[in-house]
Amino acid sequence: MVTVGVLSLQGGFSEHLSSLRKAADSSAADVHFDFTEVRTPAQLAVCDALVIPGGESTTLSLVAAQSGLIEPLREFVKISRKPTWGTCAGLIFLSEQASATKRGGQELIGGLNVKVHRNHFGRQMESFVTDLDLPFLSQSSSQAAPFPAVFIRAPVVDEMLTDNVKSIGERLEGSIAGSQKPPATAAKVEVLAILPGRHASNRKAAVGDALPVSPGGAGDIVALRQGNVFGTSFHPELTDDTRIHAWWLAQVAAAYR
């Protein structure tokens, strides 16, 4: 049996639990999954994999700190390297660096060697739904239909970080995942999905950011993986489409086979 936790401090955790259960029910895999809410270090300790949902990333990190979860989460993600998936605020939490954070910064777990830009598209008025091609889904089925991707005050990956990352000029408003433990992993960052440049005109929020990933404005990175850590800017749990949940559960099952 594989126990999959959903960090349930704040945000869309019940939607993830529901999508995960639906995906597991319709899966043909021989693995039995158990799904559980995680609010304490003791609840985290029994998990083999974890989803960090969307919500407000500032709230998530403050409540995680109050609940004594920051170091256990870093251990889970970076030392034990258990499969972990973050959506939206969860992606921010799992990044080594974030820009446009709240004054005074905010605590991150890290695990993805990237810098994310919070509220990249702007305020709620700039939130949107768009059909997104997800090439990684087509490995399991012949021709994957586009995915209805819901972006809500969403972050995107702004910058790939290298090992000498800390020497790159840091922004005053930015946050860095503080940890004595190294994020050492041989795994490279894989870009899994790009949002085409339809929102190029909407990039005002990103103007002035150093080293954009795609200077040509080819698009924004909205799904990525590095070893055990998977991140999406958008919210698959807000749709009836469980393909990404099913795909991730298959990755989790493979890790424990």
Partner: peptide, 16 residues
Amino acid sequence: TPFTVKAGLAQMLKGG
């Protein structure tokens, strides 16, 4: 704006 996007922000505020 699709209703999913409007209601979705409220869903992200849950537990808060």
